[in-house]
Nucleic acid binder design. Sequence first.
DNA 1: GCTGATCGATACGAAGTCGTACCGATACGC
DNA 2: GCGTATCGGTACGACTTCGTATCGATCAGC
Lengths: 204, 204
Amino acid sequence: MTSQAADRPDPVGASRRSKLTREREQEFFDAVIEQIGKYGYDALTMDGVAASTRCSKSTLYRQWRTKPQFVAAALRSRRRVGFADIDTGSLAEDLRQAARAVGEWSGRDHRLVQALGHAVVEDRELAQALREALIEPENAAIAEILRRGVERGEVTADHPALPYVTAQLFGVLRVRPIMEGRDADPDYLQRFVEAAVLPALGLD
Amino acid sequence: MTSQAADRPDPVGASRRSKLTREREQEFFDAVIEQIGKYGYDALTMDGVAASTRCSKSTLYRQWRTKPQFVAAALRSRRRVGFADIDTGSLAEDLRQAARAVGEWSGRDHRLVQALGHAVVEDRELAQALREALIEPENAAIAEILRRGVERGEVTADHPALPYVTAQLFGVLRVRPIMEGRDADPDYLQRFVEAAVLPALGLD
DNA sequence: GCTGATCGATACGAAGTCGTACCGATACGC
DNA sequence: GCGTATCGGTACGACTTCGTATCGATCAGC
């Protein structure tokens, strides 16, 4: 156990002895995420990130060897669950709130998934980072909501519609912009849950 | 009316007096579609198309001014409906068959939509071509199936789940590869229709 | 047939990108 | 404090791509 204390500016990678603070590092990652969401993975340039964050490319390439590895790191940095704390005691209400949460908070993230859609085919590390950072947490959050519903006896554990709830939710989220040219806002998603998801589950 | 008869090799653009036959033109388009589906829009290169079809870039740039216009033309060339002829007399059965058809035939096309997802944000013409060529026909085919169901009185015209059927179908189609790492094959889609779509419509 | 435009092939300029190398200046570790 | 590694800045080489230009060969139209 080294004397590497905790009241200093919290350098990244204690073993690497980098001068970058975690806040600084997060600036890089935010820039990456923003660029990709706006212009796509291919349009993301290391020069661009360096310029917009006023760091040098040397720094980026010192910390992360290549562009895909850099992006993967940025993705991992935002691993978090947006609606894991939903627990109203009613499956129907949980799903309604989840729908709203997905619509509000996934606006940027689903753009990210869309933008990375083809890049991940070619880079295994990128694909795994994407799954860990965005896909799995969402998956797990919905699964947890459903699990509690089953536990309370609101639906049977082998209800045929159960395995499709997550796909339904994120499916319409991603398809509406293409089909109708409008983003899937919270209202739309809640109406969808009300009209299609709950009835399929035999609720409401 | 000129003597420009019809027993000749059918040149492209009668007014342009091009020497390219329609078959030759279609070869270009096929190469474009294949490249995009495999490697994405950004990875598609004019040089690549020229090389793989053994034509010269001069030819491509003579006929289509820029890369987006070229791609848009290629998209328009494959405007067609894959399952417009489904009409079993039963809404439930129509939807089951549509699900299978979507799974079989959309394998390539939905890859295309995915690959073009971000490119269309920046090019208006490309976006419109994509809509006309792929989105609208699919939309219309499902709408027609639903319309007949309403006509036969199998569902009411204002059934709340009605507006979401198309989005659901294409939603899970596009999301399953990301969520589960597996393509949405015909079996999967039919199970989904059976378990979620039909119950939501009050059928079956 | 003759004329002229289009074809395929190739070379080229301009622009942009990745990743490396070099450079003082600064801040850390001892 | 002093050495040293990392920082930001920039220049660079190799490469790729778009779109244009050039050039002989070939095919259409009259």
